[in-house]
Structures are given as C-alpha cells and as structure tokens.
C-alpha cells in the first residue's frame, strides 16, 4: 500500500470519499511526525498500482496532498 500525505482530517475524509466513488479502497492513517515538516498530519493509504489514478482524482477534487510514501514510510515522488 502507498500513502498520500494530507494535512488535515477533513481533507483526508474528502479524499477517501472521492476515491471510494471510483472504486478505490483507501483508509485514513496518521503519518509519523518524523516524516512531516509541520507536525501532525494524516494520509490515505491505497494500492500502489492505482497511484497515477489517485493523484489525478485528488488534483481534480482540489484536495491538497503532499508526498506519496510507501507503506513503510519511505518517501516517493509526488
């Protein structure tokens, strides 16, 4: 699973709803504060193979997201 960092819970909820509407299962997770510059943040985990689609949907819905990480917390390109 991959994780898209989203700065607040409302954004994470909105992202989860948007992905669910196109059949992408995602879950809200907390992101380790050592991985964020600003402190507490949330993310949504989703199957890595849907990454391109997920990025497209989040952008289309104006959901501000940060880094895409691997499930182990390793950073990936946005």
């Amino acid at each position: 699973m991959c994780i898209a960092a989203i700065r607040n819970m409302t954004g994470a909820m909105k992202a989860r709803d948007a992905l669910s509407r196109v059949g992408i299962f995602s879950q809200i997770v907390s992101i380790d504060t050592s991985l964020t510059k600003r402190g507490c943040a949330y993310g949504i985990s989703f199957p890595c193979e849907r990454e391109v689609e997920v990025k497209r949907i989040l952008k289309a819905k104006n959901i501000d997201f940060g880094e895409i990480m691997g499930s182990s917390g390793t950073r990936r390109d946005r």
């Binding site: 700065r7 607040n8 819970m9 409302t10 954004g11 504060t33 510059k37 600003r38 402190g39 507490c40 943040a41 949330y42 501000d64």
Partner: peptide, 17 residues
C-alpha cells in the same frame, strides 16, 4: 490545537482547521 500542522506556531492556513 487543531490536530494538524502541530509544529507550526500559528494556526494552519487551511480550512476548517
């Protein structure tokens, strides 16, 4: 507290937080 951007000295810029 807003549950987000906790290291920031200021309230987050984003709504609703």
């Amino acid at each position: 507290g807003s549950g987000s951007d906790s290291r920031d000295e200021n309230m987050p810029l984003h709504f609703p937080d």
